[in-house]
Design a protein around this nucleic acid. Structure first.
Length: 331
DNA sequence: TAACAGGAGCTTT
DNA sequence: AAAGCTCCTGTTA
């Protein structure tokens, strides 16, 4: 419940992507809050009920504002405007070091401590909530699309679609009507606008409009990514239907789903096809499961990978590193 | 100590 | 026969 309230606020503060794909420390914080079941610390929602405050949603996110250094500008704005209202207790700034940058640290310097059981449970609960949130967002968008008879992807909108979407959003957030200010714009124009551009056209509603558009953009982006994945998945499935799966295909499958397997195998450089096996035992176990070889281990799996050297399927990257391999023909 | 390289024989499909 | 599996010796970081 707390998470959903939090998510709702995130949407209005243009941070959907960060909510759905949180980075290191934020991720741990979410996970801990969820697994403790006390939710994130929410302070009261007075500002939101106060009609005068519509332009500044989200300033009561006590947990949020310490987390993103890159949001400094936004923070300053929020902090300034929040001095007049009671925003409740703040969490002290989080100084804890990045101990376990698993998925979001593409660098080679990462030290992949194997996650504890507790962390895995936290991770899982976070994933569940995330998929719930995503599901709700997509449902809302789908409903709106049906109602307005527009496509979910803002990039495809014509001027009329933009106007419909504006009307809808105004209705949703009880904003004053600002359609005229956006009269001449199609979806592409709208998507390319910065928050500053929005502000110039509509000083009162720029933040909400821009944030809400960002949700739609993110949703479209996710949908696209999803169908891409499905295509690759079915391609890999159909191209070898009946035939046993090859090890390199299996590794590709895992790499395709960083959300599920990013802890044990991940891209270091997707373009060049360079990947790293973070948890050799785990990957071997998965491979053994797939091939029904309970005695599989990394020693044997890596021997199979080495067979690919001669065949030109996988090789060691130019600068050889432990547990790092490279697809000779990256997709 | 774990990962790496590669030979050799065996098994599964 | 292809693609791994298994076991092994020896090397490297």
């Amino acid at each position: 419940k707390a998470y959903f309230a939090f998510a709702d606020d995130c949407f209005k503060t243009n941070c959907l992507r960060k909510l759905l794909f949180p980075t290191g420390s934020l991720k741990r914080r979410f996970s801990k809050a969820i697994s403790r079941e006390d939710g994130l610390e929410m302070v009261d929602h007075k500002p939101r009920l106060d009609g005068s405050d519509r332009g500044h949603p989200g300033l009561y996110l006590s947990c949020f504002d310490m987390l993103f250094t890159e949001d400094a500008a936004w923070l300053v704005r929020v902090s300034d405007s929040s001095t007049s209202t009671d925003v409740g207790p703040r969490l002290e700034p989080c100084q804890e070091p990045e101990q376990c940058p698993v998925i979001d640290s593409p660098g080679l310097g990462a030290s992949p401590l194997s996650p504890t059981l507790e962390e895995q449970v936290e991770e899982r609960s976070l994933e569940q909530v995330q998929s719930l949130v995503v599901g709700e967002v997509l449902k809302d968008i789908e409903t709106a699309c049906k109602l307005l008879n527009i496509t979910p992807d803002p990039m495809e909108w014509n001027c009329g679609n933009v106007q419909k979407w504006l009307l809808w959003t105004e209705h949703l957030y009880r904003l004053p009507q600002v359609g005229k200010a956006f009269q001449d714009l199609d979806g592409k124009d709208l998507c390319s606008m910065s928050e500053e551009d929005f502000r110039q056209r509509s000083p009162q509603c720029s933040e909400t409009l821009h944030a809400h558009l960002d949700i739609w953009k993110s949703a479209a982006w996710m949908k696209e990514r999803c169908s891409e994945g499905e295509e690759l998945w079915s391609e890999a499935d159909s191209s070898c239907s009946g035939q046993p799966i090859h090890l390199w295909q299996f590794l590709r499958e895992l790499l395709l789903k960083p959300h599920s397997y990013g802890r044990c195998i991940r891209w270091l450089n997707k373009e060049k096809g360079i990947f790293k096996i973070e948890d050799s035992a785990h990957v071997a176990r998965l491979w053994g499961l797939r091939k029904n070889r309970p005695a599989m281990n990394y020693d044997k799996l890596s021997r199979s990978i080495r067979q690919y050297y001669k065949k030109g399927i996988i090789r060691k990257p130019d600068v050889s590193q432990r547990l790092v391999y490279q697809f000779v023909h990256p997709v």
